[in-house]
Design a protein around this nucleic acid. Sequence first.
DNA 1: GAAATTTAGTCAACATGGCTGACATAAAAA
DNA 2: TTTTTATGTCAGCCATGTTGACTAAATTTC
Lengths: 186, 186
Amino acid sequence: MADIKSMKNSHFLSEEDLREEDLRQAIEMLFFAYRDFTGEPDSMLAEIGLGRAHHRAVYFVGRNAGIPVTELLAILKITKQSLSRVLSQLIAEGYIEQRTGVEDRRKRHLHLTAKGIELEHQLTANQRQRIAKAYKDAGPEAVRGFRHVLHGIMDSEDQWRFDVDGNVGSGGNGGGGPPATKATRR
Amino acid sequence: MADIKSMKNSHFLSEEDLREEDLRQAIEMLFFAYRDFTGEPDSMLAEIGLGRAHHRAVYFVGRNAGIPVTELLAILKITKQSLSRVLSQLIAEGYIEQRTGVEDRRKRHLHLTAKGIELEHQLTANQRQRIAKAYKDAGPEAVRGFRHVLHGIMDSEDQWRFDVDGNVGSGGNGGGGPPATKATRR
DNA sequence: GAAATTTAGTCAACATGGCTGACATAAAAA
DNA sequence: TTTTTATGTCAGCCATGTTGACTAAATTTC
């Protein structure tokens, strides 16, 4: 191409500009959707003195019973100190319990208590309802598109968690476990 | 090691469970996509001593040149005190300038400076690229589905900002301005 | 068996960005 | 003239991210 990246700020309306408008709308829709998606659970959490970070921990422990701390860290991508603070609270207040690993006794495997399961359910009830409504209104073809695009937006590092080419509901992780990459921590 | 997608409490696989699994996958995909979507701009901002809140302000001022503070508050849904802190910094550091309204001289209309435009462009470059890649990989039909579902996830209060039935790129707000609802503040 | 690595926890200090409450000011609207 | 609106400011609190430094236990490696 002749004009490689130089003409970025030109004024004429072209396919370029159309694309730019599309991309900005995507940015904005993500912002509005995520803002509202997290709003209601955040309010509930505030009432019991917890925050969004607690929600995340409870959610992923619920989805991955027995997950060790290191794996949870890789999902959340926060420091162990940040997670530790949140986990300590959740354990102290009886939402999560730790069980020392049998094979490797350094590992703490995390599990929701009955109280934790109840909290998780209450918190995500709103979110599940919101998604269900959106899915229903948009229809199955749109849902496939939604999943396909979201899959493309996330870092490839976590894409293996979702099966996007097959149909919705195929189990999420048909391909097996995570790739054998070492996480980079400092 | 515990395999991540263990059986949980799945006693019976029915349509109910299939739906539940779909909804949870949506929740998780939103989490991963948004986490990675905001990660790179956050890093850039950290280097110049700003945060995500500054990015949001700069972004929406860029998209709505001359927007008064109250309108920006309605978009961000944060308190004026929180926004004020962020705006003051951005003004002090020359990214944004205020112009007193001519019709209503209480209003401060916000504009990006050249410096602000440059910052906005650098910050969203990553995000636009990320979306562009995902859009291209998924195809136009998937993009329509993506937009349709995201539109359904956000509160109806802000849905008017996007035209989701028409084609992508139709200008975003064909229907006119915001509905005549009074914002509820405390 | 000794040394290195992995997993996890802890303490301290700091920044960002939400929040509330209280109060001030100027201008428009009633 | 009074009230409402738009905006700003100060002060303090909380949740959640960060770094750095250190401890401890268990596993793995040499």
